[in-house]
Amino acid sequence: MPEPAQPLAVLFDRDGTLVIDVPYNGDPALVQPMPGALEAVAAVRAAGLPIGVVSNQSGIARGIVTREQVDAVNARVDELFGGFDTWQICPHGPEDGCDCRKPAPGMVLRAAAALGVDPARTVVIGDIAADVGAAHAAGGRAVLVPTPITRQEEVADAPAVAADLAEAVRIALAGDAG
C-alpha cells in the first residue's frame, strides 16, 4: 500500500475550530481563539505549508450580520493568528443552492486554486460533518475535531478524528487525514 501523500495546504474552519463559536458574530471584540488553535496554526506554518480558512457565514444571507462585519471579524482572526494565505467565505443561506456552502466543495476548490495546490493534497480541519464533506467533495482529506456541538454520528462517520487541534495538525502533517 503506498504511503499517504503529504498535504500541500491545510484549511481550517473558523467558528468552533479556530475561534470560539459566537453565533453570527459581527463583533471583532468577541473573537477568542479556541484552546490550542494559535499553536496548531503555528505548527502548520512552521512546516512550511500555506494555510487558509473556509467558513460558512449564512448570517450575511439571513440579514443578521453584514459582509463588512464578517470581514472585520476575519481581520481580527488574521491579527490574532498572524494572517492566513487565503480566506474563503460562503455568504449564502442553506436554501440558496450555491456551490460554496459546506459541505459543497466550492470554498475548498477556490482555496486550493488561490494557494496553487491540488485540492486532493489539501486537508480541511473542522468541527462538524459539513467540513469533512466539503473536503471530500473537493477530492481532499479531512480531520474532525469534535466539540460539544458535534453530533455522535458525525464522529462515527469521520475517517479521521482528533481529540484536539494539536492532534489534528499532527494527523494532517503526517498525511494520515482521511
Rank of each mutant, 00 (worst) to 15 (best):
V53E: 07
V31C: 06
D78F: 10
P146Q: 03
G83V: 11
A75R: 14
A112W: 07
R151M: 14
L109Q: 04
I89L: 14
A61G: 03
G126P: 00
G106P: 04
G63I: 10
R121D: 04
A130K: 11
L80S: 00
E68G: 08
G26Q: 06
D131E: 09
F81R: 09
G106T: 12
A130V: 07
V155D: 09
V70K: 05
L49C: 01
I60M: 06
V143Y: 05
G133H: 07
D127H: 03
G97V: 13
G139L: 06
T147A: 06
E39K: 14
P91I: 12
E95T: 12
G133R: 06
I64W: 13
D78K: 14
F84W: 09
A113C: 12
I60T: 03
V65D: 00
G59Y: 03
A142I: 14
R101P: 00
G139H: 05
I60N: 02
T150N: 08
D96I: 11
V108C: 08
W87N: 00
A113Q: 15
C98T: 08
G106K: 13
G63E: 08
T147P: 02
C98L: 05
T147R: 13
D157T: 14
A72M: 12
Q69Y: 03
L115K: 03
A142R: 13
G116L: 12
M34L: 13
W87H: 05
V41W: 02
Q57S: 06
G36Y: 09
K102Q: 02
R121E: 10
A134R: 07
G126S: 04
A75F: 07
A46M: 12
E95M: 08
K102I: 02
L38C: 07
V117E: 00
V108F: 02
L144P: 00
I125Q: 04
G59W: 05
A75D: 09
A135M: 03
I64M: 14
V132C: 03
I60W: 00
G82E: 11
A61F: 03
D157A: 15
W87D: 02
H136M: 12
C100N: 14
S58H: 07
V117A: 06
P105G: 06
R141F: 07
A129W: 11
V53P: 06
H92C: 10
I64H: 13
L144A: 01
D118S: 11
V31A: 07
D27Y: 09
R67V: 04
A138N: 01
G26E: 04
R62P: 00
P148I: 15
F84Y: 10
E153S: 09
S58Q: 11
T66L: 12
A130L: 08
R67K: 12
P103G: 06
G36V: 13
A42E: 13
F84S: 01
A156N: 14
L144T: 04
I64V: 15
V108P: 01
D71R: 15
V123G: 00
A112L: 13
N74R: 08
M107N: 10
A112N: 10
V143T: 03
V31S: 05
L30P: 02
F84C: 06
R101H: 05
R67W: 03
A61L: 04
G83E: 09
D78T: 13
D85L: 05
D99G: 15
V44L: 11
